[in-house]
């Protein structure tokens, strides 16, 4: 049941593309161990919460506060879900 539902969802998923803005993240965020934090292994909720905190200024940053302001809450959540799902 679950597998067949998955196939139906896949077949009707319209876009090949990542959600708007998502594919740019890997320009800075790479493998673990660097100065810029890796996004690997973070949940969608974590990433979305970080983006919201950067956007509001609650979390201090160098560039992420400037970048997060370019995305709505819905867009941020879509990006977070895509990255948490292994997108890069």
């Amino acid at each position: 049941m679950r597998a067949s539902l998955l196939l139906v969802l896949l077949a009707t998923t319209p876009a090949a593309a990542s959600p708007p803005g998502a594919s740019s993240c890997s320009g800075c965020h790479g493998a673990p161990g660097g100065a810029v934090p890796s996004l690997a292994g973070h949940s969608a909720d974590d990433i979305a919460a970080s983006l919201a905190a950067f956007r509001s200024g609650a979390r201090p940053a160098t560039v992420m506060n400037r970048i997060a302001k370019g995305f709505s809450d819905d867009e941020s959540q879509a990006i977070a879900a895509w990255i948490a799902g292994g997108g890069q």
Partner: peptide, 17 residues
């Protein structure tokens, strides 16, 4: 990829740093 599949690409957003 979208165009080759006959799909209309969604409007993107891009970042520069």
């Amino acid at each position: 990829i979208d165009l080759l599949a006959g799909r209309a690409p969604e409007a993107p957003k891009l970042i520069n740093t």
